[in-house]
Design a protein around this nucleic acid. Structure first.
Lengths: 107, 107
DNA sequence: TTATCATATAAGTATATAATTATGTGAGAT
DNA sequence: ATCTCACATAATTATATACTTATATGATAA
């Protein structure tokens, strides 16, 4: 794979917030409002991180009702997947970030 | 593995220069003067990149005569190794950077 | 329609990072 | 001892990045 392209993707993953988002998305898709709540960050900040991940083709979005859901968009056998495999699972991430987590009302 | 620690390592790899260095080191150790020549960058700049890689335990250095050689310092089964596996091999990297390469006199 | 909610985007600011220039260090050669 | 050579470190500057505040959009609800 190309050097430059890899560096760009790795730079995106080299941010704690984005890496956490990717880790959460391993398990299931999440809407922006959930991520805002889990990460305890402003909505614009989360949206901007998601935009960057999407621009590099790491996530994809789906609009359903008034919510936008993000999901992983990576190949199972890629080096990206290996990185995500090495991350803590969703439950651990949620515990680290929130102590405990109850979802918002985007069912 | 810990979230934060992974993000720090990935951030280091998310730089074209450092990723190239890691790719070159896949094949064999290199001295600083060779890397300076190959990367076509100033010596202080290369040294600083190497220092960061070393600080995160990604490379190790050996001093022999007046030269300092750097080599990879990663576990074979780590996600880092998977990333490096996805990189172009040394020959491709050298061709991309130099067209062709003749080593300096640190034999 | 208007109001509200979820999200995106834009603009501004503060911090982090990479590169340059200048200088320090330590080993070998003379 | 002095002079280089290979490299490291420090200080500065320029650029990139993340976050905040403010605003826009588009869908739903009233």
């Amino acid at each position: 794979m190309l050097n430059t392209e890899m560096a760009e993707k790795l730079k995106l993953l080299g941010d704690k917030t984005r890496l956490t988002i990717m880790g959460l998305l391993k398990d299931k898709e999440w809407c922006v409002c959930d991520l805002v709540d889990i990460l305890n960050m402003s909505q614009p900040s989360v949206s901007q991180h998601l935009r960057k991940l999407k621009a590099q083709g790491l996530v994809k979005e789906t609009k359903r009702a008034q919510w936008v859901y993000y999901a992983l968009d990576i190949e199972k056998d890629s080096y990206i997947q290996t990185i995500l495999d090495a991350l803590p699972d969703t439950e651990s991430l949620l515990f680290l970030l929130k102590g405990e987590y109850t979802p918002c009302d985007c069912k």
